[in-house]
Computed example of a mutant assay.
Amino acid sequence: MARPRSFDRDHVLHAAERQFRTSGFNGTSVDDISAATGLGRGSLYAAFDGKHGVLLQAMAGYSARLGSAMEALAGPDQGALERLHRFLLHAVDGVPLADDVPPAPDRATAACFAAKMALELGASDPEVERLANDCFSVVATAVAACVRAAQRNGDIDPDADPDNLAYLLLTIVRGIDVVGACGHSPARLTSIVESALALLPRPHHR
């Protein structure tokens, strides 16, 4: 059997991710991936076991990049609330949290890759569902740690459940993706962010 030619794996997975973002999984063919990545069909099958294998590895890479991006939420207790604020405002710009992917042509394409694949394939594909949940967990874990820092600093009610608040904020961010993709203005999206921040439970003495 001929050996597949050498290639830059990260480049291929990034290019495939952009294709899946643009056309969805079902709307993307192996030929589309081959054209986007410059890798022949035979090499794609040999290296990734076909289109589904490319998707799974692209999602795994996206999850790893999310972990790096979420490091921006780490830091001292003082300033944790402001870091949460910036996390929410990041969604207003309509760019992926893992922002080493080149800019997309529109908000719908730029939205969370894991959420997009989860919405398209959902529970019908357990491997995609697991990887999407891994991505959500990466973000929620980092946000919850930042919430705990804000609690220690006296900015958020210490009795509030940080994990519940983290998933609340993650849901708001993903909702902003959807509302923004429907054409609502940055001013409206920013208003959503400010309202969400104001709803975070504050210590009773304040």
Results as ranks from 00 to 15, higher is better:
109 T>K: 04
26 N>G: 14
145 A>I: 11
113 F>R: 09
97 L>S: 02
89 L>K: 06
100 D>F: 03
134 D>L: 13
158 P>E: 08
132 A>Y: 08
22 T>G: 05
165 L>D: 05
103 P>T: 09
92 V>E: 05
105 P>A: 07
75 G>E: 08
126 P>K: 12
88 L>N: 02
65 R>P: 01
170 L>D: 12
179 V>R: 00
186 P>Y: 01
60 A>G: 13
143 V>Y: 13
187 A>Q: 10
121 L>W: 07
203 P>C: 07
9 R>E: 14
11 H>Y: 12
129 E>A: 15
9 R>V: 14
185 S>K: 01
149 A>W: 08
190 T>I: 00
115 A>F: 09
154 G>F: 12
4 P>K: 01
79 G>V: 10
133 N>E: 15
38 G>A: 09
145 A>V: 02
132 A>Q: 04
187 A>F: 01
70 M>S: 06
53 G>R: 04
146 C>M: 12
26 N>Y: 05
124 S>A: 15
199 L>N: 05
92 V>N: 03
45 Y>L: 07
203 P>N: 08
30 V>D: 06
65 R>Y: 05
118 A>C: 06
188 R>N: 03
17 E>T: 14
164 N>G: 09
169 L>N: 11
194 E>K: 09
76 P>G: 15
63 S>N: 15
23 S>N: 14
24 G>W: 07
64 A>T: 15
102 P>A: 13
188 R>W: 03
10 D>C: 01
140 A>T: 13
65 R>F: 04
53 G>K: 04
84 L>M: 05
193 V>T: 06
156 I>H: 10
169 L>A: 08
98 A>M: 10
11 H>F: 14
100 D>Q: 08
173 V>W: 01
29 S>G: 04
67 G>N: 08
24 G>P: 06
160 A>Q: 07
79 G>H: 07
57 Q>W: 02
167 Y>V: 13
38 G>W: 13
27 G>C: 03
74 A>I: 00
29 S>Y: 07
13 L>G: 02
97 L>C: 01
206 R>L: 14
40 G>R: 12
51 K>Q: 07
64 A>H: 09
35 A>I: 08
154 G>D: 06
7 F>Y: 09
200 L>D: 09
65 R>G: 13
96 P>Y: 01
112 C>G: 02
77 D>E: 14
168 L>P: 00
189 L>Y: 01
129 E>I: 00
122 G>P: 06
108 A>I: 02
184 H>S: 04
161 D>K: 12
162 P>K: 13
170 L>F: 15
27 G>W: 12
71 E>L: 13
190 T>F: 01
63 S>E: 14
137 S>H: 10
52 H>L: 09
154 G>M: 08
143 V>A: 12
201 P>K: 03
125 D>F: 11
56 L>W: 02
43 S>P: 01
2 A>P: 13
